Simulated assay, not measured.
Amino acid sequence: MKTVIVWSSPNQKGLTGTAKEQFLSGLKIADTDYLEIHLNKMKIEHCRSCGNGWGLCASKGQCVIKDDFSDIYQELINADGIVFVSAVYWHDMTEHMKALIDRLRRCETAHNHFLSGKRCFLIACAGGTGLGAVECLHNMEESIKHMDMRAYDRIPVTRFNKDYILPALQRAGELYGVRLKEGFDMQY
């Protein structure tokens, strides 16, 4: 079983990077293969809304932009599990995460449906006041629902709850790895 962890934050050692590492350590305990994709190190352009709003994404399930999107998309298609970890900016995902998800959504909903039914894990990390983590998770879940993917769980991480949430993320990663192998106990 392979899990792809897609994460976005310019600060690799900050709250988001630490949360990602905790979840990853749980996957390792469950002996789950993984691939880590740090979007801030990738070239991901924003959707151009070509072709009057729908270009090759609608007709062929492909994007005309030549960047790292198609390689990331293929890794997600091949994955058994997907984890999205984002820093929170203005109550939402980072711009890097939004760019990826917007383009995924266009290819998936209009044509491909390759990600349909995948069980995802969502983590939103809000520094500062911690406000916005829940709204960010909501936006992440709404985005994956458009692609018929399902959130297995959603975890808000803030500087106020990190002392107990970060250790819980390790256990969450371990159980997610186990569920990937043994099956999910979800009805939807």
Rank of each mutant, 00 (worst) to 15 (best):
R159V: 15
V85Y: 07
F84K: 08
C50L: 04
G81S: 05
T158Y: 01
E75L: 14
P167E: 07
F114C: 13
T94V: 10
C63R: 08
D33I: 00
L100S: 01
L115E: 02
G14T: 06
I123V: 11
G177S: 01
N139I: 10
I144E: 06
V157R: 02
F160M: 13
M93I: 03
Y176C: 03
I155G: 09
D67T: 00
G127E: 02
A133I: 03
I101W: 00
N78G: 13
L24H: 09
S49E: 14
K66F: 06
M1N: 11
F84Y: 13
G14Q: 01
V4F: 08
I44G: 00
L35P: 04
Q12G: 12
W7N: 00
Q74T: 02
K43A: 13
L35M: 10
I123K: 00
R105H: 13
A172P: 05
N112I: 11
H111S: 10
I72C: 07
S8A: 15
N112K: 11
K181H: 11
I144G: 03
G127L: 05
Q74H: 13
V4P: 06
K13M: 12
V134L: 15
L166K: 01
N11G: 10
G61D: 01
E75A: 11
G61K: 02
V4M: 07
D185G: 11
Y89W: 13
W7P: 02
F121R: 08
P167N: 01
R119W: 07
D102K: 05
D33F: 10
Y73D: 01
R150E: 15
E21C: 11
M1R: 14
G117F: 11
L24N: 10
I44F: 04
L76C: 01
R171C: 04
Q74R: 15
N161V: 06
K2A: 08
N112P: 07
V178R: 08
Q74N: 15
I5H: 06
D153T: 13
T129R: 10
G128S: 09
L175I: 04
L76I: 06
D31E: 15
P10M: 13
E36I: 08
D68A: 05
S25M: 02
T94W: 09
K118Q: 00
I144D: 06
R154T: 10
M186C: 14
A168V: 09
R119P: 03
E45C: 02
K162A: 14
D148N: 15
T18F: 07
A172V: 06
H111D: 11
C136K: 07
W90T: 14
A110M: 14
S70G: 12
A168L: 12
I29S: 09
Q22P: 00
K20P: 04
M147G: 08
L137H: 01
E21Y: 11
I155N: 11
K28M: 11
V88L: 03
L100T: 13
I44H: 03
Q22W: 13
E108N: 03
S59H: 02
G55C: 07
